[in-house]
Design a protein around this nucleic acid. Sequence first.
DNA 1: TTGACAAATGACAGCGCTAACATTTGTATG
DNA 2: CATACAAATGTTAGCGCTGTCATTTGTCAA
Lengths: 347, 347
Amino acid sequence: MKSDRSAGKVTLADVGRVANVSAITVSRALRKPEMVSPKLRQRIEEIVEQLGYVPDPVARALASDRTDVIGVLIPSVTNSVFADVLRGIYAGVEGSPFSVQFGNTRYSVLEEERLLRVFLSQRPAGLIVSGIDQSETSRALLMQARCPVVQIMEMGPAPVDMMVGFSHFDAAYDATRHLIAGGYQRIAFLGARMDPRTQRRLEGYTQAVKEAGLFDEGLIITTPRASTVGLGCQLLSDLMARTQKIDAIFCNNDDLALGVLFECQRRRIAVPDEIGLCGFNDLEMMAVANPPITSVRTFRQEMGRRAVEMVLARIAGKDVPQPVVDLRYELMPRLSTRGQERLRRGA
Amino acid sequence: MKSDRSAGKVTLADVGRVANVSAITVSRALRKPEMVSPKLRQRIEEIVEQLGYVPDPVARALASDRTDVIGVLIPSVTNSVFADVLRGIYAGVEGSPFSVQFGNTRYSVLEEERLLRVFLSQRPAGLIVSGIDQSETSRALLMQARCPVVQIMEMGPAPVDMMVGFSHFDAAYDATRHLIAGGYQRIAFLGARMDPRTQRRLEGYTQAVKEAGLFDEGLIITTPRASTVGLGCQLLSDLMARTQKIDAIFCNNDDLALGVLFECQRRRIAVPDEIGLCGFNDLEMMAVANPPITSVRTFRQEMGRRAVEMVLARIAGKDVPQPVVDLRYELMPRLSTRGQERLRRGA
DNA sequence: TTGACAAATGACAGCGCTAACATTTGTATG
DNA sequence: CATACAAATGTTAGCGCTGTCATTTGTCAA
């Protein structure tokens, strides 16, 4: 007795009946066309069209023990950095039969672990996870995963499988060196959220200022709060309340840098003449701010796209020649860090 | 012969075997606990824990003809407006057994239709779609959908099912009225992307300036390009090249407004004394910009949260007393639109 | 104690599809 | 024309779960 729940639903068997072939042949005509004779294949395609048959991915998943879903775990949906990564991921699956399922870990290692279990129970075709700081359990789960895995955002010594990212330490180190080379001596660091990547940027900054003999713990201000433009304003105020002797600020991201710029404008502190300013990520607005703000460009969309490419290549059984890709970064020097230079020139 | 593909996978039957009950009883203990005696239920829960049983959503979906997935169709992942909506949606499903599947329509009605078919073939528990401008076919698909449907972002006369949004026309109308009330006479409109919601904001602006006898087509600049801060700079330049007689600018969103502010700073045009500036959406940065920028606050997270709440209520069989929710908006007057006022006071 | 009825549990079938193996058909070769 | 072998198609048996109906167990009134 056929229940009515699937009212109107056309199945492979229905198509087969009309075409006078078995369901499996229809399945093959659609999934592995080269296994079916061209003539029959065409006839089946017509009938599929005519009956409006739509394959049922759920049944397919159960029978074949796999899905066409690539799972993506990211810590935040609002952060524009991850929004860019997502865009790259979308661009990557575009045109392929694969779809994307996101999970928001909210910067929690435990939530990541939970989501990982959920995702793995759904037989993903591939997994893309953020960062390299998974819990031991998560790492184990990923190692056991019977699908390609890509870690994105960072570089690290022991990839679970594949990896696309860049060194936040190096990026921050270079940015700080740029400030030092520009003649700045009292370089503050403003950090929000303090997730692992921010931490490593702080380490890069620290190493650079220490090497130059410019380290001063009093110049570092961090907060676990999520970074916003308003927070940038406030952190600058905190910093000014603590010490006036600052000649540059390295912000752990562009939101903070923008807030610092606004607050400087309000306090009539000239950027870059009195204070140099450097952000991180090079959001679109940095180049058009007034003054344009120096930042470290990171290749966020590219990261997403590459990660998907690697997953797809592996699914297709291709060999991935470079399973660990360092996308690097690019320092974008702009007016906001030319203060000392201008002073010297007497500008 | 059991194939090895499900190596290590624990099934309901496995749990049942250990508990000396049938698989269906285990299923009930987990899904409908009130149907199983408390004692047995607890024993089963222990064994589930011990064996590490994880329910298989795919098998469940096939057997029960339904999933715990709420499908969400939005036009963009990078636009921070939608990122906020997503955050609200996430907050809404938090703690429920439901998960979210996104589809990115990229502002294309055809892509929306395609994704809708894909989603519907997966038996969603609910659907959330953006806007009210679906194609005829999409509308028909949505009407036939055997799950709750919520349209978000806008208000419209004929909801497919449920609806949460606000009137973009009214919001823009009120913002423009605010500028007019502030004494501005030559009010320009800057619009990017020109999706249906932007169009309606333009209509609201147009109606307000027409009513006040201040309409001038030459003051309207639009572009199909996606809005960015840099685009705001450029549109201001275009506007200034066309006419110098402007005393206020209503930007169709905050990115543009920020760009306009930067460009004004560069051109030494005082905001608000020479030009009043109003944005749309009230992104966090507007309040802390220099000067703070007047904007229209929209309740984006709230919109996502409410949409999910409505879907969940309907799934739970509850009656949704208010299937159409107008979330309104709030004008946030700030310094950037107090130019005429200051002039009069001689500031 | 018995019967009536509710509560608790089970047996069975099937969701729509595909893996694995089986069979038929076509084609070239000696 | 028989043989060998590849190409094309079919049969069978599930995947892991839940809907439906059947059965067993427990509870209480008469």
